[in-house]
């Protein structure tokens, strides 16, 4: 590690934290602008004006906005996400398990999808414009063109209904054995993999093809190296940065964009929880979910930036 890299990474981290703060302001402001009154929605239409005023005072709704923002933020920093309006439960408690479920699904999907996408990209480059390339490009494009609910129901029909290999409903619960858990997420995981594969694979292919024009690829060819070795050893290390960026965008999608897939497979993740509470106008829950999504997005993009920095030998080993 050298000072330039440390400085660049520290810069990215600081920027990320700043960005997250800005997002929290936006989320807070956005929910304030929305019409309706929290006290009113808790007590209902029949509440007396005195009861409303009491509750408002109790909840601190009469304080200026910046004071309420600061106390919300202070709570967040201590892990207190507030209380859900609809059922009065602590948000952190009920959200915790769901976040873990969403991350579990995202993690195992990524473990399968990312290496697969990169491998397919490498193979597509190796057989550029020949049939393996065309098959890979064609099939991944088809997969991304189909809506995720269609792919989801198709997989359920095939593997759950016809073949009966896997459960159609992805129920998971605490203390579930790992193997059963994996069986439960197999179908939603496969659906998500098919959706994100094409984007990552095409970016890998394009980034490597870009590098394949370089003089050092010719050097490698004239060294007598084989096709895949040239691509893996000489082209891929120089095309990491764009690939990582796309991979991170797709990983972010796995966390923030899984709503439809979670609903199809009745998977108890964060997306479903969010949808439920948006319908109930449960502002604190929406705020908490929004913030978690933002944190995931910003975090993954920081990782992408850091990997790009580390993949550059000029920064890693200055003169």
């Amino acid at each position: 590690m050298n000072t330039i890299v440390v400085k660049l990474i520290a810069q990215r981290l600081a920027l990320g934290i700043l960005l997250l703060l800005a997002v929290s302001v936006l989320i807070f402001a956005g929910t304030q602008i929305l019409p309706g009154d929290v006290a009113q929605s808790i007590l209902g239409q029949s509440a007396t004006p005195e009861a409303l005023a009491n509750l408002r005072r109790e909840m601190g709704l009469n304080d200026p906005a910046w004071q309420r923002y600061l106390s919300w933020l202070g709570g967040l920093l201590q892990g207190d996400l507030g209380t859900a309006l609809s059922n009065g439960q602590d948000i952190a408690d009920s959200l915790g398990g769901r976040v873990a479920n969403t991350f579990f699904l995202a993690f195992w999907t990524a473990v399968v999808a990312v290496p697969l996408a990169i491998l397919l990209g490498l193979v597509a480059v190796r057989y550029q414009n020949r049939w393996p390339d065309k098959v890979i490009s064609g099939s991944t494009l088809t997969a991304i063109s189909l809506p995720e609910f269609f792919i989801g129901y198709l997989l359920i029909y095939l593997f759950a209904v016809k073949l009966g290999w896997l459960p159609s409903v992805s129920t998971v619960y605490d203390g579930m054995p790992f193997i059963d858990r994996m069986r439960a997420i197999a179908l939603p995981g496969a659906t998500l993999t098919l959706i994100i594969l094409a984007h990552m694979m095409r970016m890998t292919r394009a980034a490597i093809l870009n590098v394949m024009q370089s003089a050092y690829i010719e050097t490698a060819e004239l060294k007598g190296l084989g096709g895949l070795k040239i691509i893996w050893r000489h082209a891929f290390p120089n095309s990491v940065a764009p690939v990582v960026n796309v991979v991170m965008l797709n990983l972010a999608f796995l966390v923030v964009g899984v709503v439809v897939v979670e609903v199809i497979f009745v998977y108890p993740g964060m997306g479903q929880y969010l949808i439920d509470h948006v319908a109930k106008r449960d502002v604190p829950v929406v705020q908490a979910c929004g913030l978690i999504f933002a944190a995931v997005y910003i975090g993954l993009n920081i990782v992408a930036d850091v990997v790009s920095i580390l993949s550059n030998p000029r920064l890693r080993h200055p003169k």
Binding site: S214, A215, Y216, E218, T219, A220, E221, L222, K223, G224, L225, G226, R233, H234, P237, N238, S311, P313, R314
Partner: peptide, 25 residues
């Protein structure tokens, strides 16, 4: 056969070594 030949019997020195070396290794 060409892969066996290249780099073993016949080697190459390019015009611009700056471009012909892989920056990553």
């Amino acid at each position: 056969g060409l892969r066996q030949l290249r780099g073993k019997e016949v080697c190459y020195v390019a015009q611009s070594a700056a471009a012909a070396f892989n920056p990553a290794h």
